[in-house]
Simulated assay, not measured.
Amino acid sequence: MSGYLWRRIGQALLVVALAYSAVFFILNVLPGDPIEQQIANPENPITDDEADALRAYYRLDEPAHVQFAISLTRLFSGDLGYSLNSGQPVARLLGEAIPSTLALASVAFVLAALIGFVLAVLAVFVPWGPVREAARTLPAVFLSVPAFVSGLLVLQLIAFQLGWMSAVRDQGLRSVFFAAIPLAIPVAAPIAQILTQGLANAYGRPYVEVLRAKGLPSYRIVFGHVVRNGSIPTVTIVAITVGELLAGSVITETVFNRTGIGYLTESAVRNQDTPIIQAVVISVSVTFVVVNLLVDLVYPLIDPRIRKATGAAAPKTRAVPA
């Protein structure tokens, strides 16, 4: 297991390093010097003294490899640079935006998991055919509706017609919950599809008949054994859902007027604020890689086949083999 662990950690660090290098050279070493162009932009609100300080900080007169080495050194110390439009530290702007996005993404993930689980259970275990077909069709419908469309519909219904939330003011958990709905809908679709397939396969295995022969009631067979074994493949899409949540936050936060990572990204792209764009891309890349790494490390603990392949110690208790 130790070899598997270090191999996966090494791969994760390599991915982060490559992502940072690619983002740096794409955003900072393009022809025409995009940082200098934005600093010198007449519409940029920073003063001349602040512009000179930014030029000195980013060492724009140095070769690209020197700028990269300096940027890498600053990154390890937590220095993400300064905004080209406000002159504020990027780390501070990012720190102020992360809590809002984290709350939104967390609630959306919980909602997506609940919706996906309910649809999968209905699609596999409900005895009525029309209900099963509807539960199998809904994920495709969820994927076909763009996030900005569902966001506008939720905003129109909840804020303007029912008056359950404000369209401009942050009302705490209430605002987070309703904003998370359009973000959770497309994420729930792959969860429901993968979980439906996993539960259907697990429900058709011979051990289910053995458990019935032993006299176990249906609810214990389903929720005590089938759900446990059938949900294992769903773990593999956790990292994908994290990527979708982070990507969807850009649109959702814009629609619901939330000042998180999505709003910060949209503003940075609109104003060509390269350091903020770079910091957001790197932060999202690190988050995505870390989640993938955690999933890879957790998978051997719940799947006996991977645990055997990696040489991990078997836990004292295990699920009924599928």
Rank of each mutant, 00 (worst) to 15 (best):
M1D: 07
G3P: 07
Y4L: 03
Y4F: 02
W6T: 14
W6H: 09
R8I: 01
G10I: 06
Q11Y: 01
V15P: 01
A17H: 05
L18I: 15
Y20C: 12
V23E: 05
V23I: 14
F24N: 09
F25L: 13
I26C: 09
L27Q: 05
L30A: 15
L30H: 14
G32K: 07
G32L: 02
G32N: 04
E36N: 10
E36R: 12
E36G: 04
E36V: 12
Q37L: 13
Q38C: 13
I39A: 04
A40W: 06
N41P: 06
N41L: 06
P42H: 07
P42M: 04
E43L: 00
T47N: 11
T47C: 01
T47D: 09
E50H: 05
E50R: 13
A51I: 07
D52P: 05
D52E: 15
R55F: 02
Y57P: 02
Y57G: 05
Y58L: 03
Y58E: 01
R59K: 06
E62W: 08
P63K: 03
A64E: 01
A64C: 14
H65S: 15
H65G: 12
V66L: 10
Q67D: 05
Q67Y: 05
A69K: 15
I70C: 13
I70G: 15
L72I: 11
L72Y: 04
T73K: 15
R74Y: 10
F76M: 04
S77A: 15
G78L: 11
G78T: 08
D79K: 11
S83E: 08
S83K: 05
S83G: 13
L84I: 12
S86F: 05
G87D: 06
Q88M: 08
V90K: 06
A91F: 11
A91N: 02
R92F: 15
L93C: 09
G95E: 00
G95D: 06
E96V: 13
E96D: 15
E96W: 11
I98Q: 09
I98W: 10
S100I: 15
T101G: 09
A103C: 00
A103E: 12
L104P: 03
L104I: 11
A105K: 00
A105H: 02
A105E: 05
S106P: 01
S106Y: 08
V107C: 00
F109W: 08
V110D: 06
V110G: 03
L111V: 11
L111T: 01
L111P: 07
L111F: 07
A112W: 00
A112Q: 07
A113F: 13
L114R: 08
L114H: 12
I115R: 01
G116N: 07
V118I: 14
L119H: 08
V124F: 03
V124S: 07
V124L: 06
F125S: 03
F125D: 03
